[in-house]
Design a protein around this nucleic acid. Structure first.
Lengths: 189, 189
DNA sequence: ACCTGAACACCGTTCAAGT
DNA sequence: ACCTGAACACCGTTCAAGT
């Protein structure tokens, strides 16, 4: 009689939390097993390899992000308000234990990632950029730039702000950087 | 009679290269030992712990960057030209085997870093920001922002561009993002 | 002064064995 | 269907031993 109704679910929850702090390399099956209350060998029953777990993790993370972004776009089609919601999602990770976007931290480990995980990380970036393109459609892009280039720049800049704030363990650094992005016109505000 | 005149130097060179690709977690004493042609236990003679190696690595990396930046500032005090040189340093890492800035990749692993390495990563960020403040002194900051806030935003944005381009293994993505930063006024160009 | 082999507790993975 | 113990080759680290 297991404590949790669904071991697979419990593994995914613990793994997501750990991965957002320690990355893919820092994710340990033995630590994960302790969190869940099983032996590390048992994790392989649910996820044959660490790469399988990483890929599922990233795919679920993307689906969750997609849902959040769609909900924001449904509340308003104002670029400034949508971007505020967008920035808020990345801010939340920092607030919650100085964590990173799962796919942002994994992008840094790119060379060590199994191919299946690499693909999911790329898909997350695409999802973000596609949503930003939709939002930015009714805003004025920087001179000579199309919406796609603009979207890519915003995605990269927010990821960088998260990374910079994290290594200071200080969310206000994130806020300050975003404010400068807005003042410069990179982010509509 | 060792092949290399200075084993310590050989360890540092190999470690820097590996760390810029695989990060601190992905740095293996046994792989490093193979590169240098000694046994992994021997590395501990030169660097007692992996944290010691990481801290020395980051400190040397910072010193090298400081020299490069000072040289650029000596060639010209034009903000646009200095920033072009700055961007070029980050671009070079991507060109050279899709590598990252050492301290950028380590910032993503922040939670797993020994304290001595954390300090060096923070010092690298400070060095970058201080240099940028000097360069930006004679340029017009985005409305309501001081030079320090502006410098922080540029440092974060360039790091994010490197991260985003790396996970596509495509330097032209970096160039496109930087072009948008320039068009928006975030980076003087 | 510099290097090594052997040991330790870690890691992901496999697999025969349990229920 | 789900879990485990034991084994394997990896990891950083220690240390007595070599030169």
């Amino acid at each position: 009689m297991p404590m949790t109704p669904d071991t697979r679910e419990a593994i995914l929850t613990a793994a997501r939390s750990r991965a957002q702090s320690h990355g893919y390399n820092g994710l340990s099956f033995r630590e994960l097993a302790k969190d869940v209350g099983i032996k590390s060998a048992s994790i392989h029953y649910h996820f044959p390899t660490k790469g399988d777990l990483g890929a599922v993790l990233a795919r679920l993370y993307s689906a969750h992000a997609q849902a959040d972004l769609d909900a924001a776009l449904e509340r308003t089609d104002s670029p400034a308000e949508c971007l505020a919601a967008y920035v808020g999602l990345f801010r939340k990770a920092l607030e919650d234990g100085n964590r990173m976007c799962l796919c942002g931290i994994m992008a840094a480990e790119y060379d060590d990632l199994p191919d299946a995980v690499k693909a999911e990380v790329a898909a997350f970036a695409d999802l973000n950029i596609d949503w930003l393109v939709k939002v930015l459609a009714k805003a004025d892009a920087p001179a000579g730039q199309n919406a796609k280039q603009w979207a890519r720049a915003i995605y990269a800049a927010i990821g960088g702000a998260q990374l910079a704030a994290r290594s200071r363990n200080d969310v206000t650094i994130f806020d300050g950087i975003v404010a400068t992005y807005q003042a410069s016109g990179l982010i509509p505000g």
